[in-house]
């Protein structure tokens, strides 16, 4: 049987000061994906190899890794597309837990800060919405939270800013573009979430396994809204009037 050579990153930070790539040989199988190879190692060669996975169907976004230094899902990357040298390491934007597993819990802290869906006042339930209006937000709801876009983002990787990262801008866009949502979160993105640090290199869009147009459809529109809202005097005035009307109404 044919063998596949694969180098896997190993480090237990509580023991090892530095990580290393260890070579393994795994029997080749037709249609094999990287996660199959990692599972083979785990089940037959070294049960201590840590990997996070769930559905193995590219639906849950658990098995994010850097495969030949490119952020990808292990369950979706076929071995036969990778050539002879295969290198698998953890996503590097997050603290390492062990081997291929990183601590992505910071993302849930950010999620808590994003203002939740707030329906417009006076809406009658059940809601009616136009299919065309719904489609816009639905694109962002395809996100499987694999955090590959966060991993590839150079602002997150190489700088210390308050930028929350592409995943969270997508989340905000999914709420802002909900047809019945009452809030505008672009101000939040601008002042609390560091959106200005994104310089639109579109790397996040390139790695998205769900092919969401992160930069084109979420980040750029949100940037435009933030600029309009914060710096355009006419928008500023319009907002003032709207807000005043609102507070009167609420009284």
């Amino acid at each position: 049987m044919d063998k596949v050579k694969i180098s896997v990153f190993r480090q237990d930070p509580s023991v090892d000061k530095e990580g290393r790539y260890q070579d393994y040989e795994v029997p080749a199988e037709e249609g094999m994906v990287v996660l199959d190879a990692v599972h083979y190692i785990e089940n037959n060669i070294d049960p201590t190899l840590s990997v996070r996975w769930n559905c193995k169907a590219a639906r849950c976004g658990s098995c994010s890794a850097e495969i030949n230094d490119f952020p990808r899902l292990m369950c979706k990357t076929r071995i036969d597309t990778l050539g002879s040298h295969i290198k698998v390491g953890p996503i590097r934007a997050y603290p390492l837990v062990k081997d291929l597993v990183t601590d992505v819990s910071h993302n849930f802290e950010i999620a808590k800060r994003i203002p939740a869906f707030k329906p417009k006042r006076g809406l009658k339930e059940p809601f009616t919405m136009n299919e065309m209006d719904v489609l816009r937000s639905q694109e962002f709801r395809k996100c499987i939270e694999c955090f590959l876009c966060q991993d590839v983002c150079h602002v997150i990787r190489e700088h210390t800013t308050n930028y929350v990262g592409p995943r969270h801008v997508v989340k905000v866009a999914s709420l802002d573009m909900h047809p019945l949502d009452d809030l505008d979160r672009s101000g939040f993105l601008n002042s609390n979430a560091g959106l200005g640090y994104c310089n639109v290199t579109k790397c996040c869009q390139e790695v998205c396994p769900e092919h969401i147009k992160i930069t084109d459809n979420a980040i750029i529109p949100e940037k435009e809204r933030a600029v309009d809202g914060s710096y355009d005097p006419i928008f500023w005035l319009a907002r003032k009037i709207k807000d005043t009307g609102r507070s009167k109404h609420e009284k």
């Binding site: 480090q11 930070p13 590097r92 997050y94 603290p95 990183t102 997150i156 990787r157």
Partner: peptide
């Protein structure tokens, strides 16, 4: 090949919650 952990893995300030 070795990788220096401190160079690559950023640590976040994690809030204590709940």
């Amino acid at each position: 090949m070795t990788i220096n952990n401190s160079l690559y893995y950023r640590t976040f300030q994690r809030d204590v919650y709940g």
